[in-house]
């Protein structure tokens, strides 16, 4: 019998790691609390009726709002959803239903995975070269396209995963009663995977609605109301970026207000999405 290693030592190491792991979780929670608290406190001080109804004012006047940026963010995000979600959805359908093992399918899946990891600032630069340089102006639609490109792979992968969860027996029984494949997909699969698809879409929308980097090069910013989709458009995130770096206190205050608005929306959509998914289970 060889000499047994020190059991006590192993137990002590285990104990230390256990305590550390609890602490690490606590640190995570602590930062969440700290960030939420800071943004809520600073943001609430900035939110008033003017914030939601007025245009930005020159620094010092203390009465400006970000009504145009709120409108711009809503329009850009909606437009991005309209472009990105169908593309992503049907890419997911292709991956799950037609291209599961084909060479093209594998290539698309691989590329989708990689695209998910491309930094959003690169997407912004790309759309800048695609839609801003040739037309010689920044625009809301360029911003929307950039956000749509960020949504596309996310929606595609969730769709594929969610459709993969639908049992094959359901597909086969639908096809067995003579239903064409497209109807089987649209009527049966989409319905069966409904809550998962909705959750995935909501999370993707929440994610892009907080994006800043891609909008700097595409929608840019503007102090005015938008009149068309083909002009620089005010939005909350780029406004935060510009105002936070400015030396003016009332602009910084507006930046905090915008931060709170964005954060609250994103978190609310996230909670809603998770709630929907749990409801289903």
């Amino acid at each position: 019998m060889k000499k047994t290693q020190n059991v006590r030592r192993r137990e002590v190491i285990n104990h230390i790691v256990s305590v550390l792991s609890g602490l690490a979780a606590l640190v995570g929670i602590f930062f969440l609390g700290w960030i939420l608290w800071t943004v809520a406190r600073q943001g609430l001080a900035a939110l008033n009726l003017d914030f939601f109804t007025k245009l930005p004012a020159p620094p010092g006047s203390d009465s400006g709002g970000l009504a145009n940026a709120i409108a711009g963010t809503v329009v850009i995000t909606l437009l991005a959803t309209v472009i990105g979600v169908p593309l992503g959805l049907f890419t997911g359908v292709y991956l799950s239903e037609f291209g599961r093992v084909s060479h093209f399918g594998r290539m698309v899946r691989f590329t989708t995975n990689i695209t998910t990891g491309i930094p959003s600032i690169i997407v912004g630069l790309f759309v800048y070269t695609l839609l801003v340089v040739p037309f010689k102006h920044f625009s809301a639609y360029a911003g929307a396209v950039a956000l749509a490109i960020i949504m596309l792979p996310v929606v595609a992968r969730t769709t594929e995963d969610m459709l993969a969860l639908v049992p094959n027996a359901l597909r086969e029984s639908a096809l067995a009663i003579g239903m064409p494949r497209w109807r089987m997909i649209l009527a049966i699969l989409f319905r069966a995977a409904r809550s998962g698809l909705l959750t995935g879409t909501l999370l993707a929308v929440a994610r892009v609605s907080g994006e800043t980097a891609p909008l700097i090069f595409t929608a840019m910013n503007s102090p005015y109301w938008m009149k068309s989709l083909a002009e620089p458009t005010a939005n909350l995130t780029v406004t935060i970026f510009n105002y936070a770096m400015s030396p003016f206190d009332d602009w910084k205050r507006l930046a905090w207000g915008a931060s709170l608005l964005i954060m609250a929306t994103v978190l609310a959509v996230n909670i809603l999405a998770r709630y929907l998914l749990r409801e289903k289970k």
Binding site: L32, G210, I262, L267
Partner: peptide, 21 residues
């Protein structure tokens, strides 16, 4: 759940918090 929420916070918020706090 809290950690998942932390993951959802947009990066610009981290920037604001980082810069000012």
């Amino acid at each position: 759940a809290a950690i998942e929420l932390l993951a959802a916070i947009p990066s610009i918020i981290y920037g604001m918090w980082g810069l000012f706090v």
